[in-house]
Design a protein around this nucleic acid. Structure first.
Length: 612
DNA sequence: ATTAGGG
DNA sequence: CCCTAAT
């Protein structure tokens, strides 16, 4: 799938001319001019040859797909070099203008004038309805409908007829006009002059936008000597228009009726151009409802006006993440990211162009979910929350604890994370070495001692009670997060250190299993984060572990197979022993167990009888 | 408040 | 680890 169309990755650079405005007037001649956008932003008219080529494309596409491109993308009207199909003197028939052309077919036909690696291909979007301009979408859709379904085009607006013959009146444009200064009424007039119909929209912002876009893309207007810049209509000067109109062109909004079958093919083409924007049904469905009623124009307009899309949290996250990554490093490890495609050509082709400063690449990645191969916006999966605390013991005991993937991910993406971990690690190292108590010696001691006699325990205990959990005292207070149910819950797992385990075991030995609060108070007084419940839980786990492992008399380091920190066998032995003494042996195991251990048999009996 | 046990 | 029931 991917390999079959590699050319799109590199060459298919849909540069979509920004065409806003136009609602039902979509019907009128929309004229495009094929231009090449020069590096400096100038629009260089296409040569006759180029036009021919494009015309062919248009011709082809007309037959092929009368579909609404499923394309949503961010585009710039003045990106680097490339072709830009712009509305202008390039005359096409009215019918053609209604045809939505896909940026697909054999793009290789068109060659950039200079071979400087301008791989841009035409992104021909006859219409590029913004998702927010639902009306445009509707019109388009209806157009498509009428083509493909032969459905009665009842919605051909009454103004449409007028529209086709109507010519914008730019006579009003004298000198400079600053849309910002105009009152609503004036704006409405201008709107009428531009689009040839009335509007009752009061939203200045909306009006300005529409007018601006309408003028910008108007063939007739572009024939005048005016240009628009920053909401100001001015005499065309030396320079050409270079709107940095960042617009999201979304032509999809397919209502699934006319386009249901088109998705497949289109989505292929658009694979690389993605948009994280919501395709939330609300937009689509609601617009679909209105789609066949042009008399609701006003209503729609107002709805449309409100429909300014604010970026999703995720979108913001994504952008900021990209940004920060760019800033911090010029893509520290490009190869890691190579599989992510940049939707915007310029980043791909000319990453160093200044253009880049205001063009934001939309990074997407292939999602393997369900094998659908759907593209979803890429957002790096860096763990956002606090790094795991206190994983040093893990590393010490099991250097391979962190798998390659994790490391790679970290090294590749985690730019801000590591310091925290490092700091923590240092803390741990410091504290543990200062007390002379690293985990290693402890284990060694335990392992050496087969029966794990009482003396040793006492010895340990003394030390333990002194240094015990100092390692974590350096660490802040336990981070808690509120839970849905109002309770506070610890946010991070606190791995049990061998040290703690030993303390626990001894505590149990001394005070008995079940006296958790006692143990907690006496042995874990310095570990505020271990609650009595924690102790109990841990003991439960230890018990389980010990009985899983012991029956087979597994080797000392056999536990290494187990994930995470292996609990030294001696400790487990001890645990089992204690369990034996306290009658905590699970009944199931006790049967086979007691038969084998004559020594503990009696004690078990005693303990049991005492308990039962 | 502490404990036991399930999730 | 969290939650809850039982003590």
């Amino acid at each position: 799938m991917e390999a079959s169309e590699p050319k799109f990755e590199d060459s298919a650079v849909p540069v979509t001319s920004t065409i806003r405005a136009l609602e039902k007037e979509i019907a009128h001649p929309i004229v495009y001019q094929l231009v090449r956008v020069d590096g400096d932003g100038r629009l260089v008219p296409a040569t006759q040859d180029e036009i021919m080529v494009v015309e062919d494309l248009l011709e082809d596409d007309k037959c092929e797909s009368k579909l609404v491109p499923d394309t949503r993308q961010i585009s710039e009207s003045c990106i680097t070099e490339g072709y830009l199909l712009e509305r202008n003197s390039f005359q096409v028939t009215e019918e053609k203008s209604n045809v939505l052309v896909d940026p697909v077919p054999d793009l290789g036909k068109i060659d950039a004038p200079d071979k400087t690696g301008i791989n841009f291909q035409v992104a021909v979007h006859g219409l590029a309805p913004l998702s927010e301009l639902s009306n445009v979408d509707h019109s388009v859709r209806n157009d498509v409908c009428s083509h493909s379904q032969d459905a009665p085009n009842e919605d051909t607006p009454s103004t449409s007829a007028a529209g086709s013959s109507w010519k914008p009146d730019f006579s009003k444009l004298e000198g400079k006009i600053c849309l910002d200064d105009l009152p609503v009424k004036e704006l409405q007039e201008t709107f009428k002059a531009t689009f040839g119909r009335e509007t009752s929209v009061k939203d200045k912002q909306w009006l300005k936008r529409r007018i601006t876009m309408g003028l910008t893309n108007s063939c007739d207007f572009s024939c005048t000597t005016f240009i628009i810049r920053d909401n100001v209509v001015v005499k065309k000067g030396e320079e050409q228009i270079c709107h940095r109109v960042k617009s999201r062109i979304s032509a999809d909004s397919e209502d699934g009726v006319a386009n249901s079958n088109s998705r497949g093919s289109l989505s292929n083409h658009d694979n690389k151009i993605n948009d994280d924007a919501d395709l939330s049904g609300a937009d689509v469905s609601s617009s679909a409802l209105e789609s066949c009623n042009v008399t609701k124009d006003l209503n729609s307009e107002q709805i449309t006006a409100k429909r300014a899309r604010k970026p999703t949290k995720r979108y913001i996250e994504e952008l900021s993440e990209i940004e920060s990554r760019e800033i911090s490093e010029k893509l520290a490890s490009p190869e890691k990211i190579s599989r992510y495609q940049f939707a915007c050509p310029e980043t791909h082709i000319r990453p160093t162009k200044n253009v880049r400063s205001y063009v934001r690449p939309l990074v997407t990645r292939q999602d393997s979910l369900g094998g659908s191969g759907v593209q979803i916006p890429f957002v790096s999966r860096i763990r956002r929350s606090r790094p795991r605390e206190n994983f040093m013991p893990l590393l010490k005991l099991q250097p391979s604890g962190m798998d390659m993937a994790t490391r790679q991910v970290r090294s590749a993406f985690d730019i801000s994370g590591p310091q925290e971990d490092d700091k923590r690690n240092n803390d741990l190292i410091k504290t543990s070495s200062s007390t002379g108590w690293t985990e290693q010696p402890l284990i060694a001691a335990c392992e050496k001692d087969e029966h794990y006699g009482g003396m040793k325990i006492v010895e340990l205990e003394n030390d333990v009670e002194v240094n015990d959990c100092s390692e974590d005292n350096s660490d802040d207070n336990v981070v808690t997060v509120p839970t849905q149910k109002g309770g506070m819950r610890r946010k991070h797992h606190r791995p049990w250190t061998i040290n703690e385990v030993v303390k626990l075991v001894e505590g149990v030995a001394r005070y008995g299993a079940g006296k958790w609060s006692e143990i907690k108070r006496l042995a874990f007084s310095t570990c505020p984060y271990r609650t009595s419940v924690d102790l109990k839980d841990k003991w439960r786990n230890l018990l389980k572990a010990s009985f899983v492992q012991l029956p087979a008399e597994k080797g000392i380091l056999n536990s290494r197979k187990q994930a995470s920190v292996p609990i030294p066998a001696p400790i487990l032995s001890r645990v089992r022993e204690l369990a034996d003494m306290q009658g905590q042996i699970p009944p199931v195991l006790s049967a086979c167990k007691s038969s084998g251990h004559s020594s503990s048999d009696r004690s078990v009996h005693e303990a049991r009888s005492g308990f039962l």
